[in-house]
């Protein structure tokens, strides 16, 4: 043990390693620890009437948040949104990975065709779909209006919410495909060949052998999809609906953005940052569990 440790850490210099660590520690301290601590501190204070000093108010910011029906709606909406996006993107992405792995020739071509949306920014995805579906401009949008469907997400909250869910999931299919396909490729061929010799069909092999074997990857993907839906969807929502109409597409991150940067309510937005911190920390701990279980 000690011999191995000595081999792994062969250099005994005392100062040099800290010099090497210094840049990363500096960036982490200045742009991560300080802001996080500052948010935590602020979340127990409010600005006075002149905005010059902070007044300690204990948990009041949190109590106000908990009592605010708009915020409570945003909590529920965020979880519904994240579950829908994660479920849809994961289901489609894994299904496509199974199809390419089990039923397609020219796997590399399909891989390219299903991978590229990873490189698309959520905000740009919003712009592209807006152009297609805009009620007075888009190819499909104008057709929907002419067909008397009442299509206009700018005034219909349900349409807006479903639209944002659909585009967020559409963009995330590629991510799930990439990971599921890589996990399927890594499975030993012999297992599948053995099942084929026993007369199992492709669907049976997928369901009883491949999916259970890539379960750790699937679990990891659920967590990553939830984090994506919570946080990366901001650009899409900002491009498409700005949280509207009438808050119908306002998620927790969007709410924190509005309170912090539009309304400049610092204590309140700091409390929201802390709430988000707890959400992410919980999701990340889940992810570590998934990592621990991965073969």
């Amino acid at each position: 043990m000690s011999r191995e440790a000595a081999a792994r850490e062969p250099f005994g210099e005392a100062v040099l390693p800290w010099l090497l660590l210094a840049p990363q520690l500096a960036v982490t301290g200045i742009f991560f620890l300080w802001p996080a601590a500052w948010a935590f501190w602020q979340s127990f204070h409010i600005s006075d009437a002149f905005g010059t000093s902070l007044i300690f108010v204990g948990l009041e910011n949190y109590v106000l948040l908990a009592e605010d029906p708009l915020y409570r709606d945003a909590v529920v909406r965020s979880f519904v949104f994240a579950s829908l996006v994660a479920g849809f993107a994961l289901g489609v992405g894994v299904g496509l990975a199974l199809l390419v792995e089990n039923g397609a020739r020219r796997k590399r071509v399909w891989q390219a065709l299903l991978t590229w949306p990873y490189a698309l920014a959520p905000a740009t995805a919003g712009v592209l779909w807006l152009f297609l579906l805009h009620p007075s401009v888009g190819l499909i949008g104008t057709a929907l209006v002419r067909a008397d469907t009442g299509w206009d997400w700018r005034i219909n909250g349900t349409q807006a919410f479903l639209l944002v869910v659909g585009i967020a999931a559409w963009k995330q299919v590629a991510y799930n495909f990439i990971f599921a396909f890589a996990a399927l490729l890594a499975l030993p061929r012999s297992l599948i060949e053995a099942a084929e010799m026993d007369g199992a069909g492709k669907a049976r092999i997928a369901w009883s052998i491949q999916l259970p074997l890539i379960a750790p990857t699937l679990f990891f993907l659920i967590v990553v999809n939830l984090v994506y839906a919570f946080f990366d969807s901001f650009g899409l929502i900002h491009a498409l609906t700005r949280g509207g109409p009438a808050n119908a597409t306002e998620t927790l991150v969007y709410r924190a953005f509005v309170d912090g940067h539009v309304n400049h309510d610092l204590g309140r937005s700091a409390a929201q940052s802390v709430v988000l911190l707890v959400v992410v920390a919980a999701l990340t701990l889940l992810q570590f569990r998934a990592m621990g279980r991965r073969p």
């Binding site: 200045i30 742009f31 991560f32 300080w34 802001p35 996080a36 500052w38 948010a39 602020q42 946080f231 990366d232 901001f234 991150v253 924190a256 953005f257 912090g260 940067h261 610092l266 937005s269 700091a270 940052s273 988000l276 911190l277 992410v280």
Partner: peptide, 10 residues
């Protein structure tokens, strides 16, 4: 995205 508001101040 989580630490955006406090990081902005800094």
């Amino acid at each position: 995205e989580v630490r955006i508001v406090p990081t902005y101040d800094v």
